[in-house]
Amino acid sequence: MKASRSEFLAVRGLRYHVRHWGDADAPKLFMLHGWMDVSASFQFVVDCLQKDWHVIAPDWRGFGLTERAHADTYWFADYIGDLDAILDHYAPGEAIRLVGHSMGANVSTSYAGVRPDRIARLVNLEGVGMAASRSEQAPRRIEKWLDELRAPPTMRSYASQAEVAARLQKTNPRLTDARAAFLSGHWAGETSPGNWEILGDPAHKGISPHLYRLDEVLACWARITAPTLYIEATETDMGRWMGAKDSARLEIDRRIATIPNVTTRMVENAGHMLHHDQPEVLARMIEDFLG
């Protein structure tokens, strides 16, 4: 495995953990992980990159080794604000190459439309947004949020790192033993002898009182000027909340088509965690696109 190094910096009042691979003088490549994941999740893709890159990957607020938010709720706009601050720190005034997976792809794709001049090339790994909300859903949604403030979500613990690895493989049966063992040491930590806890704030599991306004999201995507590569796995389950398979396919395609200069690719024999399932194929696609 290619060696990584950790750095901690202040980002909007939080102590942020940022993972680096490669020489600091090499071309920069930023990578953003998904929900309930960590920056080390990109290790396998980084190992397969053929060119020399300085890969910069933060742990989002409340994930991995980054400090948790000083609030009961995580607001999506804060991820965009954090990304803006991180780019200003590492690449002030530069148009950067940006790769995001799942939640990280949703953040990066919205950001690319908000600050189009900051992105040179964008790679979106299965970041197609969430189910569109309707205004009439607001009262019950806020009510549920209030209920969760009284009884906050919790995370289960594990008796060993091996149990954590088994949990990862239950979620993704394609994950090899070696990769599960590696990820488990970054995805969770031993807080006391025989007690392993996920390095993620349980508050992430709570509902947001804000509705997901799809029209606002797509308005951001429509402003993207950077060439964009959208990559999807053939065996993904990310569209299950969009309804039947055929209707989900149409909705995903409609959303991605909002991006002006987009190319789509498919990765065979992979699920939603395609960067774990087919890192060699994915690395090749990314580098071919980045030129």
Rank of each mutant, 00 (worst) to 15 (best):
T264A: 13
N261I: 12
N269L: 12
A248Q: 04
E232L: 09
A257Q: 11
I252Y: 06
E232Q: 08
D246P: 01
T234S: 15
E268S: 08
P260H: 08
R240H: 14
M273P: 03
I231D: 04
H276L: 08
R223E: 15
L229M: 14
I224T: 03
T258F: 00
T258A: 09
D253H: 08
H276T: 00
I256S: 04
D253G: 11
Y230Q: 05
H275C: 14
G239Q: 02
D246W: 01
S247F: 10
M273I: 06
R249T: 13
S247K: 12
M273Q: 03
G271S: 12
A257H: 04
N261Q: 13
A257G: 09
R223H: 09
P260V: 09
H275V: 03
G271F: 05
I224P: 00
A248E: 05
C220P: 01
M238S: 14
R223K: 13
A257Y: 01
T236D: 00
Y230A: 02
D246L: 06
A219Y: 14
A219F: 14
I224R: 00
I252M: 09
E232P: 01
L274C: 10
G243I: 01
A233H: 01
I252T: 06
M238Q: 15
G271M: 03
V267H: 05
T264H: 10
T236N: 05
R265K: 15
V267E: 01
D277C: 11
E232A: 09
A222N: 06
D246K: 07
I256Y: 03
A226P: 03
I231V: 15
C220S: 15
A222V: 11
K245C: 09
P260C: 14
W241M: 14
H276K: 07
L250Y: 09
P260Y: 05
R265F: 11
Y230E: 00
R255S: 03
A219K: 15
Y230M: 08
K245M: 03
N261H: 14
R254F: 12
R265S: 05
H272K: 04
A226F: 10
A219P: 02
T236E: 00
M242H: 09
T264D: 06
A233I: 03
T263S: 14
I231P: 03
L250S: 11
I259E: 01
V262I: 10
C220E: 09
I231K: 04
L229G: 02
T225H: 10
D253Q: 10
D277Q: 07
D253N: 14
